[in-house]
Design a protein around this nucleic acid. Structure first.
Lengths: 181, 181
DNA sequence: TATCGACAGGTAGAAAGTGACATGTCGAGA
DNA sequence: TCTCGACATGTCACTTTCTACCTGTCGATA
Protein backbone atom coordinates (compact mmCIF):
# COMPACT_ATOMS: atom_id res chain seq x y z
CA UNK A 1 0.00 0.00 0.00
CA UNK A 2 2.98 2.33 -0.27
CA UNK A 3 2.30 3.57 -3.77
CA UNK A 4 -1.08 4.98 -2.85
CA UNK A 5 0.34 6.74 0.16
CA UNK A 6 3.15 8.18 -1.88
CA UNK A 7 0.54 9.58 -4.27
CA UNK A 8 -1.58 10.92 -1.41
CA UNK A 9 1.54 12.50 0.05
CA UNK A 10 2.41 14.28 -3.17
CA UNK A 11 -1.19 15.42 -3.61
CA UNK A 12 -1.24 16.67 -0.03
CA UNK A 13 1.28 19.32 -1.06
CA UNK A 14 -0.54 20.44 -4.18
CA UNK A 15 -3.06 19.17 -6.72
CA UNK A 16 -1.52 17.46 -9.72
CA UNK A 17 -2.29 15.32 -12.74
CA UNK A 18 -1.12 11.77 -13.34
CA UNK A 19 1.46 13.21 -15.68
CA UNK A 20 2.72 15.63 -13.04
CA UNK A 21 2.89 12.85 -10.48
CA UNK A 22 4.83 10.63 -12.87
CA UNK A 23 7.33 13.46 -13.22
CA UNK A 24 7.57 13.96 -9.48
CA UNK A 25 8.23 10.27 -8.99
CA UNK A 26 10.93 10.32 -11.64
CA UNK A 27 12.59 13.41 -10.20
CA UNK A 28 12.23 12.92 -6.47
CA UNK A 29 11.10 9.51 -5.25
CA UNK A 30 12.36 7.07 -7.87
CA UNK A 31 15.99 6.99 -6.84
CA UNK A 32 15.83 6.72 -3.11
CA UNK A 33 12.33 6.07 -1.85
CA UNK A 34 9.84 4.40 -4.13
CA UNK A 35 9.93 3.37 -7.73
CA UNK A 36 6.81 3.73 -9.88
CA UNK A 37 6.03 4.60 -13.45
CA UNK A 38 2.96 5.98 -15.20
CA UNK A 39 1.51 2.57 -15.94
CA UNK A 40 1.13 2.02 -12.22
CA UNK A 41 0.25 5.58 -11.32
CA UNK A 42 -2.74 6.10 -13.63
CA UNK A 43 -4.68 3.01 -12.53
CA UNK A 44 -3.92 3.75 -8.87
CA UNK A 45 -5.26 7.30 -9.23
CA UNK A 46 -8.46 5.92 -10.71
CA UNK A 47 -8.76 3.55 -7.77
CA UNK A 48 -8.08 6.32 -5.25
CA UNK A 49 -10.74 8.47 -6.91
CA UNK A 50 -13.17 5.55 -6.79
CA UNK A 51 -12.58 5.27 -3.05
CA UNK A 52 -12.98 8.99 -2.53
CA UNK A 53 -9.43 9.59 -1.30
CA UNK A 54 -8.71 11.95 -4.17
CA UNK A 55 -10.96 13.86 -6.58
CA UNK A 56 -10.68 15.41 -10.01
CA UNK A 57 -10.70 19.18 -9.51
CA UNK A 58 -9.94 20.34 -13.04
CA UNK A 59 -9.80 19.10 -16.61
CA UNK A 60 -7.47 20.72 -19.11
CA UNK A 61 -6.08 20.31 -22.58
CA UNK A 62 -5.08 16.89 -23.92
CA UNK A 63 -7.42 15.13 -21.54
CA UNK A 64 -5.47 16.37 -18.53
CA UNK A 65 -7.19 15.69 -15.22
CA UNK A 66 -5.95 17.44 -12.11
CA UNK A 67 -6.48 15.53 -8.89
CA UNK A 68 -6.60 16.90 -5.36
CA UNK A 69 -6.54 15.02 -2.08
CA UNK A 70 -9.86 14.91 -0.20
CA UNK A 71 -10.42 15.13 3.54
CA UNK A 72 -10.85 11.35 3.63
CA UNK A 73 -7.58 11.00 1.76
CA UNK A 74 -5.81 13.35 4.13
CA UNK A 75 -7.10 11.36 7.11
CA UNK A 76 -5.91 8.11 5.53
CA UNK A 77 -2.47 9.57 4.83
CA UNK A 78 -2.14 10.94 8.35
CA UNK A 79 -3.16 7.63 9.84
CA UNK A 80 -0.61 5.81 7.70
CA UNK A 81 2.14 8.25 8.61
CA UNK A 82 1.46 8.04 12.32
CA UNK A 83 1.42 4.23 12.40
CA UNK A 84 4.66 2.95 10.94
CA UNK A 85 5.11 -0.84 10.88
CA UNK A 86 7.65 -2.54 13.14
CA UNK A 87 9.77 -3.58 10.17
CA UNK A 88 10.02 -1.78 6.89
CA UNK A 89 10.22 -3.79 3.71
CA UNK A 90 13.37 -2.83 1.87
CA UNK A 91 14.36 -3.83 -1.63
CA UNK A 92 17.51 -2.22 -2.88
CA UNK A 93 19.34 -3.84 -5.74
CA UNK A 94 22.40 -1.68 -5.20
CA UNK A 95 22.86 -2.82 -1.63
CA UNK A 96 22.17 -6.40 -2.67
CA UNK A 97 24.99 -6.21 -5.18
CA UNK A 98 27.31 -4.80 -2.53
CA UNK A 99 26.34 -7.76 -0.34
CA UNK A 100 27.38 -10.15 -3.06
CA UNK A 101 30.64 -8.33 -3.79
CA UNK A 102 32.45 -11.13 -2.00
CA UNK A 103 31.52 -13.55 -4.79
CA UNK A 104 33.85 -11.61 -7.08
CA UNK A 105 37.61 -11.31 -7.09
CA UNK A 106 39.37 -8.07 -6.06
CA UNK A 107 39.83 -6.73 -9.58
CA UNK A 108 36.18 -7.20 -10.43
CA UNK A 109 35.10 -5.64 -7.14
CA UNK A 110 37.23 -2.62 -7.90
CA UNK A 111 35.62 -2.33 -11.33
CA UNK A 112 32.19 -2.23 -9.70
CA UNK A 113 33.14 0.21 -6.95
CA UNK A 114 34.73 2.85 -9.12
CA UNK A 115 31.45 3.86 -10.82
CA UNK A 116 29.80 3.88 -7.38
CA UNK A 117 32.31 6.44 -6.15
CA UNK A 118 31.81 8.56 -9.25
CA UNK A 119 28.04 8.44 -9.43
CA UNK A 120 27.54 9.15 -5.75
CA UNK A 121 29.71 12.22 -6.15
CA UNK A 122 27.58 13.37 -9.08
CA UNK A 123 24.30 12.76 -7.25
CA UNK A 124 25.68 14.57 -4.24
CA UNK A 125 26.56 17.60 -6.33
CA UNK A 126 23.17 17.65 -8.06
CA UNK A 127 21.30 17.39 -4.79
CA UNK A 128 23.38 20.08 -3.11
CA UNK A 129 22.71 22.37 -6.03
CA UNK A 130 18.96 21.89 -5.88
CA UNK A 131 18.98 22.43 -2.12
CA UNK A 132 20.94 25.65 -2.51
CA UNK A 133 18.51 26.79 -5.18
CA UNK A 134 15.56 26.02 -2.89
CA UNK A 135 17.22 27.75 0.08
CA UNK A 136 17.76 30.86 -2.03
CA UNK A 137 14.10 30.95 -3.08
CA UNK A 138 12.98 30.31 0.50
CA UNK A 139 10.04 32.35 1.74
CA UNK A 140 11.02 35.13 4.15
CA UNK A 141 8.78 33.70 6.88
CA UNK A 142 10.76 30.49 7.00
CA UNK A 143 8.34 27.91 8.41
CA UNK A 144 9.74 24.76 10.07
CA UNK A 145 10.51 23.54 6.51
CA UNK A 146 10.16 19.84 7.10
CA UNK A 147 10.85 19.15 3.46
CA UNK A 148 14.42 20.33 3.99
CA UNK A 149 14.93 17.39 6.32
CA UNK A 150 14.69 14.59 3.79
CA UNK A 151 16.91 16.52 1.40
CA UNK A 152 19.54 16.56 4.10
CA UNK A 153 19.07 12.83 4.57
CA UNK A 154 19.71 12.30 0.87
CA UNK A 155 22.78 14.53 1.03
CA UNK A 156 24.24 12.65 3.95
CA UNK A 157 23.40 9.26 2.43
CA UNK A 158 25.22 10.05 -0.80
CA UNK A 159 28.15 11.45 1.11
CA UNK A 160 28.28 8.22 3.10
CA UNK A 161 28.09 6.11 -0.05
CA UNK A 162 30.85 8.12 -1.66
CA UNK A 163 33.19 8.00 1.32
CA UNK A 164 32.53 4.31 1.72
CA UNK A 165 33.26 3.49 -1.91
CA UNK A 166 36.60 5.30 -1.68
CA UNK A 167 37.41 3.55 1.58
CA UNK A 168 36.45 0.16 0.09
CA UNK A 169 38.60 0.74 -3.00
CA UNK A 170 41.51 1.68 -0.79
CA UNK A 171 41.05 -1.36 1.39
CA UNK A 172 41.00 -3.70 -1.59
CA UNK A 173 44.17 -2.08 -2.88
CA UNK A 174 45.89 -2.57 0.47
CA UNK A 175 44.79 -6.19 0.87
CA UNK A 176 45.94 -6.78 -2.67
CA UNK A 177 49.33 -5.43 -1.76
CA UNK A 178 49.51 -2.79 -4.41
CA UNK A 179 48.34 0.70 -5.20
CA UNK A 180 45.98 0.82 -8.14
CA UNK A 181 45.67 4.11 -10.08
CA UNK B 1 15.27 -11.30 -11.10
CA UNK B 2 17.02 -10.13 -7.93
CA UNK B 3 15.74 -12.88 -5.67
CA UNK B 4 17.34 -15.61 -7.73
CA UNK B 5 20.66 -13.80 -7.78
CA UNK B 6 20.52 -13.23 -4.07
CA UNK B 7 20.03 -16.98 -3.63
CA UNK B 8 22.81 -17.78 -6.08
CA UNK B 9 25.06 -15.37 -4.20
CA UNK B 10 24.39 -17.01 -0.86
CA UNK B 11 24.89 -20.46 -2.34
CA UNK B 12 28.16 -19.31 -3.94
CA UNK B 13 29.59 -18.99 -0.45
CA UNK B 14 28.43 -22.36 0.79
CA UNK B 15 25.74 -24.99 0.10
CA UNK B 16 22.55 -24.52 2.09
CA UNK B 17 18.95 -25.66 2.40
CA UNK B 18 15.87 -23.54 1.84
CA UNK B 19 15.57 -23.29 5.58
CA UNK B 20 19.16 -22.09 5.94
CA UNK B 21 18.64 -19.54 3.18
CA UNK B 22 15.46 -18.28 4.80
CA UNK B 23 17.48 -17.72 7.96
CA UNK B 24 20.23 -15.93 6.11
CA UNK B 25 17.72 -13.62 4.49
CA UNK B 26 16.15 -12.87 7.85
CA UNK B 27 19.49 -12.20 9.51
CA UNK B 28 21.47 -10.49 6.80
CA UNK B 29 19.61 -9.31 3.72
CA UNK B 30 16.08 -8.57 4.93
CA UNK B 31 16.77 -5.24 6.62
CA UNK B 32 18.95 -3.47 4.14
CA UNK B 33 19.15 -5.27 0.85
CA UNK B 34 16.38 -7.60 -0.18
CA UNK B 35 13.27 -8.82 1.58
CA UNK B 36 12.12 -12.41 0.99
CA UNK B 37 10.45 -15.09 3.03
CA UNK B 38 10.30 -18.87 2.79
CA UNK B 39 7.18 -18.87 0.65
CA UNK B 40 9.15 -17.16 -2.08
CA UNK B 41 12.44 -18.92 -1.48
CA UNK B 42 11.29 -22.53 -1.75
CA UNK B 43 9.55 -22.19 -5.12
CA UNK B 44 12.49 -20.16 -6.49
CA UNK B 45 14.96 -22.86 -5.43
CA UNK B 46 12.87 -25.46 -7.25
CA UNK B 47 12.90 -23.26 -10.35
CA UNK B 48 16.65 -22.69 -10.11
CA UNK B 49 17.20 -26.44 -9.79
CA UNK B 50 14.97 -27.01 -12.81
CA UNK B 51 17.13 -24.63 -14.82
CA UNK B 52 20.34 -26.27 -13.64
CA UNK B 53 21.66 -23.20 -11.81
CA UNK B 54 21.69 -25.04 -8.48
CA UNK B 55 21.57 -28.73 -7.58
CA UNK B 56 20.60 -30.84 -4.59
CA UNK B 57 23.81 -32.18 -3.11
CA UNK B 58 22.49 -33.81 0.06
CA UNK B 59 19.27 -34.90 1.71
CA UNK B 60 18.99 -34.99 5.47
CA UNK B 61 16.51 -35.46 8.26
CA UNK B 62 13.06 -33.89 8.12
CA UNK B 63 13.14 -33.74 4.34
CA UNK B 64 16.06 -31.33 4.35
CA UNK B 65 17.57 -30.77 0.93
CA UNK B 66 20.93 -29.06 0.68
CA UNK B 67 21.50 -27.11 -2.52
CA UNK B 68 24.79 -26.07 -4.07
CA UNK B 69 25.43 -23.65 -6.90
CA UNK B 70 26.45 -25.25 -10.22
CA UNK B 71 29.00 -23.95 -12.72
CA UNK B 72 26.13 -22.65 -14.83
CA UNK B 73 24.75 -20.89 -11.78
CA UNK B 74 28.12 -19.40 -10.96
CA UNK B 75 28.45 -18.10 -14.52
CA UNK B 76 24.97 -16.57 -14.37
CA UNK B 77 25.72 -14.89 -11.05
CA UNK B 78 29.03 -13.53 -12.29
CA UNK B 79 27.40 -12.19 -15.42
CA UNK B 80 24.69 -10.48 -13.37
CA UNK B 81 27.22 -8.97 -10.98
CA UNK B 82 29.43 -7.62 -13.75
CA UNK B 83 26.55 -6.00 -15.64
CA UNK B 84 24.71 -3.68 -13.28
CA UNK B 85 21.75 -1.78 -14.77
CA UNK B 86 21.93 1.99 -15.33
CA UNK B 87 19.31 2.61 -12.68
CA UNK B 88 18.66 0.47 -9.65
CA UNK B 89 15.11 -0.08 -8.55
CA UNK B 90 14.73 1.06 -4.96
CA UNK B 91 11.75 0.56 -2.69
CA UNK B 92 12.28 1.73 0.84
CA UNK B 93 9.24 2.49 2.92
CA UNK B 94 11.31 4.18 5.59
CA UNK B 95 12.74 6.73 3.19
CA UNK B 96 9.31 7.22 1.65
CA UNK B 97 7.91 8.11 5.03
CA UNK B 98 10.74 10.56 5.62
CA UNK B 99 9.86 12.12 2.25
CA UNK B 100 6.32 12.63 3.38
CA UNK B 101 7.32 14.03 6.77
CA UNK B 102 6.37 17.48 5.51
CA UNK B 103 2.69 16.46 5.44
CA UNK B 104 2.77 16.32 9.25
CA UNK B 105 3.08 19.09 11.79
CA UNK B 106 6.27 19.56 13.85
CA UNK B 107 5.05 17.66 16.91
CA UNK B 108 4.06 14.66 14.87
CA UNK B 109 7.33 14.73 12.95
CA UNK B 110 9.21 14.74 16.24
CA UNK B 111 7.20 11.72 17.40
CA UNK B 112 8.24 9.82 14.28
CA UNK B 113 11.89 10.82 14.41
CA UNK B 114 12.58 9.90 18.01
CA UNK B 115 12.18 6.12 17.41
CA UNK B 116 14.34 6.49 14.30
CA UNK B 117 17.16 7.91 16.39
CA UNK B 118 16.79 5.15 18.96
CA UNK B 119 16.48 2.22 16.60
CA UNK B 120 19.37 3.29 14.39
CA UNK B 121 21.55 3.46 17.50
CA UNK B 122 20.48 -0.06 18.45
CA UNK B 123 21.10 -1.45 14.95
CA UNK B 124 24.45 0.27 14.90
CA UNK B 125 25.47 -1.35 18.17
CA UNK B 126 24.31 -4.80 17.05
CA UNK B 127 26.15 -4.56 13.77
CA UNK B 128 29.34 -3.30 15.37
CA UNK B 129 29.22 -6.20 17.81
CA UNK B 130 28.82 -8.79 15.06
CA UNK B 131 31.63 -7.21 13.08
CA UNK B 132 33.92 -7.28 16.11
CA UNK B 133 33.03 -10.91 16.69
CA UNK B 134 33.81 -11.74 13.05
CA UNK B 135 37.09 -9.79 13.17
CA UNK B 136 38.15 -11.71 16.28
CA UNK B 137 37.43 -15.06 14.62
CA UNK B 138 39.18 -13.93 11.43
CA UNK B 139 41.44 -16.47 9.74
CA UNK B 140 45.16 -15.77 10.27
CA UNK B 141 45.72 -15.60 6.50
CA UNK B 142 43.39 -12.63 6.15
CA UNK B 143 42.29 -12.69 2.50
CA UNK B 144 41.02 -9.44 0.92
CA UNK B 145 37.84 -10.06 2.96
CA UNK B 146 35.37 -8.45 0.64
CA UNK B 147 32.51 -9.40 2.93
CA UNK B 148 33.85 -6.92 5.47
CA UNK B 149 33.09 -4.13 3.00
CA UNK B 150 29.32 -4.36 3.04
CA UNK B 151 29.33 -4.62 6.81
CA UNK B 152 31.16 -1.32 6.89
CA UNK B 153 28.59 0.14 4.53
CA UNK B 154 25.83 -0.91 6.91
CA UNK B 155 27.71 0.56 9.85
CA UNK B 156 28.17 3.90 8.13
CA UNK B 157 24.59 3.98 6.89
CA UNK B 158 23.17 3.48 10.36
CA UNK B 159 25.55 6.05 11.78
CA UNK B 160 24.35 8.49 9.11
CA UNK B 161 20.71 7.74 9.87
CA UNK B 162 21.29 8.22 13.57
CA UNK B 163 23.18 11.49 13.21
CA UNK B 164 20.60 12.76 10.77
CA UNK B 165 17.66 11.94 13.04
CA UNK B 166 19.28 13.85 15.92
CA UNK B 167 20.03 16.78 13.61
CA UNK B 168 16.46 16.76 12.29
CA UNK B 169 14.98 16.70 15.80
CA UNK B 170 17.19 19.57 16.79
CA UNK B 171 16.26 21.56 13.71
CA UNK B 172 12.56 21.09 14.36
CA UNK B 173 13.05 22.22 17.95
CA UNK B 174 14.86 25.34 16.80
CA UNK B 175 12.32 26.22 14.12
CA UNK B 176 9.61 25.67 16.69
CA UNK B 177 11.34 28.15 18.96
CA UNK B 178 11.59 25.93 21.97
CA UNK B 179 13.65 23.11 23.40
CA UNK B 180 11.77 19.86 23.66
CA UNK B 181 12.93 17.28 26.27
C1' DT C 1 2.66 22.99 -43.68
C1' DA C 2 5.20 19.14 -42.00
C1' DT C 3 7.51 17.23 -38.27
C1' DC C 4 8.87 16.41 -33.74
C1' DG C 5 9.13 16.41 -28.92
C1' DA C 6 6.78 17.18 -24.70
C1' DC C 7 2.29 16.57 -22.89
C1' DA C 8 -1.40 13.34 -21.52
C1' DG C 9 -3.68 9.17 -20.97
C1' DG C 10 -4.23 4.40 -21.09
C1' DT C 11 -4.40 -1.49 -21.44
C1' DA C 12 -3.13 -6.51 -21.19
C1' DG C 13 -0.58 -10.32 -19.88
C1' DA C 14 3.11 -12.04 -17.20
C1' DA C 15 5.99 -12.07 -13.26
C1' DA C 16 6.92 -11.14 -8.52
C1' DG C 17 5.57 -10.85 -3.91
C1' DT C 18 2.11 -11.41 0.31
C1' DG C 19 -0.73 -13.55 3.84
C1' DA C 20 -2.70 -17.32 5.45
C1' DC C 21 -2.86 -21.91 5.79
C1' DA C 22 -1.04 -26.81 5.96
C1' DT C 23 2.03 -30.69 7.25
C1' DG C 24 5.25 -33.19 9.42
C1' DT C 25 10.00 -34.45 12.21
C1' DC C 26 13.36 -34.47 15.69
C1' DG C 27 15.48 -33.62 20.24
C1' DA C 28 15.42 -31.75 24.86
C1' DG C 29 13.46 -31.27 29.05
C1' DA C 30 9.31 -31.69 32.37
C1' DT D 1 5.99 -40.39 27.87
C1' DC D 2 4.41 -35.95 26.69
C1' DT D 3 4.97 -31.47 25.13
C1' DC D 4 7.08 -27.86 22.87
C1' DG D 5 10.13 -25.31 20.13
C1' DA D 6 13.20 -25.38 16.36
C1' DC D 7 13.70 -27.66 12.09
C1' DA D 8 11.93 -28.24 7.43
C1' DT D 9 8.97 -27.78 3.31
C1' DG D 10 5.33 -26.58 0.98
C1' DT D 11 0.49 -24.50 -1.43
C1' DC D 12 -3.03 -21.19 -2.90
C1' DA D 13 -5.51 -17.07 -3.70
C1' DC D 14 -4.72 -12.54 -3.99
C1' DT D 15 -2.35 -8.09 -4.76
C1' DT D 16 1.33 -5.54 -6.71
C1' DT D 17 4.55 -4.54 -10.11
C1' DC D 18 6.76 -5.01 -14.79
C1' DT D 19 7.18 -5.17 -19.80
C1' DA D 20 5.51 -3.94 -23.72
C1' DC D 21 2.30 -1.98 -26.31
C1' DC D 22 -1.26 1.70 -27.82
C1' DT D 23 -3.58 6.45 -28.77
C1' DG D 24 -3.85 11.02 -29.28
C1' DT D 25 -2.92 16.57 -28.69
C1' DC D 26 -0.59 20.83 -28.68
C1' DG D 27 3.06 24.16 -29.76
C1' DA D 28 7.41 25.34 -31.72
C1' DT D 29 10.55 25.11 -35.22
C1' DA D 30 12.18 23.80 -39.91
Amino acid sequence: MSLRHALLGLLAEEPASGYDLTGKFARALQRYAWHAKHNQIYPELTRLAGEGLVAVVAEGARGRRTYAITDTGRAELRNWMLHPPDVFVVRNEFVLRMFLLSTLDPDEARALLRPVAEESARELATLRESIDRADATAPPTAAPELSRLVAEYGLRSFQTMHDWALWALDRIDQADGRREP
